[in-house]
């Protein structure tokens, strides 16, 4: 692991200005990814994990979305203050994204070969023929059977798993330094999910890329991540190396998530559900945003917003009672 951060997000803030009011989707997120490292961003829908990724990539729908503060340092340069043209040249070449739904992320009226080749033509100035040859290589690389014959097929002619491979191929085309994968396997069946995650992990090792894996699936995270950042209501509430987080979570929300999932390897009794619902982003409760659902909530939680307390080396938790939470196992 290198000392210089590949990507450093500092106090990022994003809001959506809608008719119903201002939705504060990201409220001061800071995180760091190093080369060759996999950071999992874990959260439920509405926690701000995808919006964070979109802001980093510079593909936020604006309006209604606005980045209202913070820095996104990629290899030391702030992406947010960079010109659009400069940023466009980095996208794809240096940092790339894999989306959840390959069918809507790929162009339905272009063959997959043409879409892959376009990357080389635009960014590398290759000829059409050269680019096409590279596209076939790439499809081979992500193990699409009979790549040569299928290069002229359209996205709808592929199965879900194969389409996701094409998305991965596209993200990898220019050998970027960082890949952001937003729920890359959520739409896939488990046996296909296993194939795709294995492929992604293998390629990440091979190219020594940094990977940000955005997901709600605690199982997928346990399988591939080095570090985890847990998000809730637009904030990171806990960060930790993967083993430590599962062994002893330092935030009651993380604890609640781990307790609420049924396990394949044991037959449990009643599940310990977290009561209530995630807050609306237009009306985030004062103090700790998790306090209305938290079994540990005290008066201080309803008034004082907890910062990310350092809990141990490489671990932080935004809970006033992180110590009690850690000890409570």
């Amino acid at each position: 692991m290198e000392n210089t951060a590949l990507l450093e997000v500092r106090d990022l803030r994003v809001e959506f200005r809608t008719r119903e009011g201002v939705a504060k989707a990201v409220n001061g997120v800071s995180c760091t990814v190093h080369a060759g490292q996999t950071l999992a961003v874990l959260g439920e829908s509405g926690s701000g994990k995808s919006v964070t990724a979109q802001a980093v990539m510079g593909i936020l729908d604006s309006p209604p979305g606005f980045v209202t503060g913070g820095q996104v340092l990629f290899q030391g340069r702030d992406l947010l203050t960079m010109g659009e043209e400069q940023r466009r040249r980095l996208r794809g070449a240096k940092l790339a994204m894999i989306f959840q739904d390959a069918l809507s992320a790929l162009n339905p009226v272009m063959t997959v070969g043409a879409q892959l080749a376009e990357m080389y033509q635009v960014h590398r100035g290759m000829s059409g023929k050269e680019a096409r040859a590279r596209a076939v290589q790439l499809m081979d690389r992500v193990r699409i059977p009979a790549a040569k014959e299928r290069v002229n097929d359209y996205p709808h002619q592929f199965s879900g798993g194969m389409r996701q491979r094409i998305m991965i191929a596209m993200a990898l085309a220019l050998e970027p330094d960082l890949i952001i994968a937003d729920e890359p396997t959520t739409a896939l069946d488990v046996t296909v999910q296993a194939q795709v995650m294995d492929l992604l992990a293998e390629l990440r090792r091979e190219f020594n890329m940094g990977l940000i894996l955005i997901t709600h699936d605690l199982g997928v995270v346990a399988d591939v991540a080095d570090r985890i950042a847990v998000m809730y209501a637009g904030r990171i509430v806990e960060t930790a190396p993967v083993h430590q987080l599962y062994e002893a979570p330092a935030h009651p929300y993380t604890r609640g998530l781990l307790d609420s999932i049924p396990r394949l390897d044991r037959k449990g009794q009643r599940l310990h559900a977290i009561k209530g619902l995630p807050p609306s982003l237009t009306a985030i409760p004062p103090g700790c945003p998790f306090n209305p659902r938290c079994p540990r909530a005290q008066d201080i939680c309803r008034t004082d917003r907890p910062p990310l307390f350092p809990v141990a080396a490489g671990r932080t938790s935004a809970c006033h009672f992180w110590k009690d939470t850690l000890d409570a196992r």
């Binding site: 488990v190 296993a194 605690l218 995270v221 346990a222 399988d223 991540a225 083993h243 599962y246 390897d265």
Partner: peptide
Amino acid sequence: AVPVPDPAAR
């Protein structure tokens, strides 16, 4: 193929 939420099981 089911991912188990336990990194120690990896």
